[in-house]
Structures are given as structure tokens and as C-alpha cells.
Amino acid sequence: MTRQFRARTGWPCAAGFALVLCLPTHAGAQSLQASTQAATFAESCMSCHGLNGKGQGAIPQLAGKTQESLQGAMTEFASGARPGTIMRIIAKGYTPEQAAALGAYFAQVR
């Protein structure tokens, strides 16, 4: 899965497919595709965390948090280091690069 994912987008930067981070080395169509990929990943998160990560109620909002904190949470949920409920399962479905890209996506939502 990871291999296939990387092959398709071919990101040059470790931070993944966030448009702003990739622009200097990867302008144009590939960056557009990369940012679209980040958006499609993020859209699944929104079913619980709310549209654009700005949901209501007990489930934490993701919008506007730092990329580091979001990526860190994903990493710790996946490893079991952070206590949690469903995120301990869901986080295991994403590679570190994908978690970084998700973090970057929600960090830029205002």
C-alpha cells in the first residue's frame, strides 16, 4: 500500500503532500495532485471530526492545531503510547508520511 501510494504521487519531501511544503521543488500539476490527495485523505477524518476539522461535541477539533501535534497524536495512537479509543485503531491505517500530510492539511485550516 505504502509503495503504491508513494509511486503515484512521487513526493520529494518527507513532510508529504502538503502543497505549500512541496511547492519549491514541485510546482505545477504534481503539486496540485499531491494537495488533492491530502484533501481526500482528510475528508475521511471529517466524518467524525467535522467539516474541515471544525466539529461539535466531545470529538476533538483538528482545525488550526499544529502539524507537529496532529502528526504526534497519530504516531502515539498508532504505537499505543497515547491512551485513546477508536483512534488507536484508525491511526494504524496511515503511514508516517500520510499522518504528516494530514497534520499539514488540518494545520492550515483557519
Binding site: 471529517m46 466524518s47 467524525c48 467539516l51 466539529g55 461539535q56 461535541g57 466531545a58 479509543t85 477508536i86
Partner: peptide, 19 residues
């Protein structure tokens, strides 16, 4: 934990129906 997940269920319902 069970109480937290009951609250998450309510939150999920609000958010997915708003979606």
C-alpha cells in the same frame, strides 16, 4: 471509557449529519 464513547457517538452523529 464507556461514557466517553457514548459522548463520542453523540458528537459523531452531530458531525456526520452536518457533513
Amino acid at each position: 471509557t464507556r461514557a466517553a464513547e457514548a459522548a463520542y457517538a453523540e458528537s459523531w452523529y452531530s458531525n456526520i449529519t452536518a457533513d
